[in-house]
Each structure stands twice: as structure tokens, then as C-alpha cells.
Amino acid sequence: MVSDKLIFYQNVLGSRRLSNFFWALVTMIGGVGFLLAGLSSYLNINLLIVSDISSLQFIPQGIALMFYGITGSLLSLYQWFMIFLNIGSGYNEFNKETNVATIFRWGFPGKNRRIEFICPLEDVKAIRAEIRDGINTKRKLYLKVKNKRDIPLTRIGQPISLSDLENQAAELASFLSVPLEGI
């Protein structure tokens, strides 16, 4: 089956997933709660509305609560920072007009924030699907390129369904007229 399209474009979801928002919020609430409980035991003032912590002693419980509160708050800040920058988002573009495959992702701030891989379409050998079920489920698509490592095409995180993976792999392999491996 030959496609009439000249450009195949896929958006890749990064850190702005619902699960990341949920865990950042839970971590923030827990970290701030522990921090307020530890400060309450130090100041002998109840800073928490929902509980009575008058029986907590600063040493050792208050110090431990403050440590966990600071750690949880810093972890939450890191998670919100990742969500704000949308780390891992990007796109896959395969353009028959310019004969170029472009894989783009946003990374961490710095000189390598823009992660971009560009190669001619002639160098693409195949589309490889990696499917591994079990405790550590893995369902990913890779672009096999001559003289280079396999380039991941799917997002990181929750594995996509088998039918979606097969459809994406077949559609891309058909568009590029390359073999499909692993299915």
C-alpha cells in the first residue's frame, strides 16, 4: 500500500501527562504537610488545621518530619519544573518532499535543550517494535538507521496499547516503504 501523503507527522507527549500532575500535587501536599508538622513541633504552635500535633516533640519526631517535608517539597518542585518545561515532548516528522526524517525532543535546560536527530530517508532500514510484557511492560517503536543506534519514536511512560502500537508501526513502515520488525 503506497501512501499519497508526502509528510508523516506524529506529536510526542512529554511531561504534561495527567499522572505527572497527580503525583506532583500529592508530593507537594505531603511535603508541605510534613514540613508544617515539623515546624509546629519546633515553634509549639499548631500550623496544621486538620490535626493536633501538640504531643510531638521536636527531637526526634519534629526533625524527622522537617527532613521529610523539605525532601518532599523539593521533589515536588522538581516535578513541577519538569511539567512546566514539558521535558520529553516533541515530534517525529518524515518528509518525502525534502527526503528527511526529523526526530525532535525537548530536554533539560542548557546547551543541549533541543534534542534533534535528522537523517535522510534512504538511511532508514526498518521500523522495529519492541514488545515485552510482564512486571516491566515495554511497548516501543524504534527507527532503525544505517550505522547508528535505534532511535526511539514513542513517548516514555505508560505503554501504549498493542493495537495502537501495531497501527502506528504499520502506518509508518508503509509510508517509508521499509520492513517492520518485531511484530
Rank of each mutant, 00 (worst) to 15 (best):
G30C: 12
S73M: 04
L36K: 06
V124F: 03
Y142A: 01
P152C: 09
I160D: 03
S41D: 14
I183K: 13
D150C: 06
E122S: 13
S3E: 15
N11Y: 14
S73K: 01
F22L: 14
A24W: 03
R149Y: 11
E166N: 13
K144M: 11
I103D: 01
R105W: 01
N46V: 12
A129W: 03
N147Y: 14
L35D: 08
W106R: 14
R113Y: 05
L6N: 12
E130Q: 09
G134N: 04
L121Y: 01
V178Y: 01
G72S: 10
F21M: 10
L56I: 15
Q158W: 09
S41R: 06
L176Q: 07
G110T: 05
S73C: 06
N92S: 07
L65W: 02
N136Q: 09
L85E: 04
P152H: 10
N92D: 13
G31L: 02
R16H: 08
G90H: 02
P152W: 09
R149L: 12
L180F: 10
L39Q: 10
V145Y: 08
P159L: 12
Q168R: 13
I156H: 09
S3Y: 12
E130Y: 08
M28V: 09
K125H: 01
F22G: 04
S19A: 11
P109M: 08
L13E: 14
L36V: 05
I53E: 13
V178W: 02
M28R: 00
T102E: 01
I29V: 15
N86H: 10
M66C: 14
R114Q: 03
N167P: 00
S54L: 11
A101E: 01
M66N: 07
L141D: 01
V2S: 15
K5D: 13
L141P: 00
Q158G: 00
G33Q: 08
Y68E: 11
G38C: 09
P60Y: 11
Q61S: 15
D150N: 14
S15H: 09
K148D: 13
F34Y: 15
P120G: 02
A64K: 07
G30K: 03
E181M: 06
G62C: 12
Q158V: 12
I151N: 04
A126S: 09
A37K: 01
I49Y: 08
R149P: 06
I156T: 11
N167Q: 13
V12T: 14
G134A: 00
T27K: 02
S15Y: 06
A101H: 02
I59T: 12
I63F: 09
L180S: 07
L77D: 03
T27H: 10
F117K: 03
L75T: 09
D52M: 06
I103E: 02
I135V: 07
W23N: 05
T27E: 13
Q10Y: 13
Q79Y: 04
I87V: 15
D150K: 02
G90T: 03
I118G: 02
L48F: 06
R132E: 04
M28I: 11
V12K: 08
F22K: 13
R114M: 03
P60F: 10
L39T: 08
K140Q: 11
N147H: 13
F34R: 00
G14Y: 04
E122C: 00
I156Q: 11
I49V: 14
R149A: 15
L75K: 01
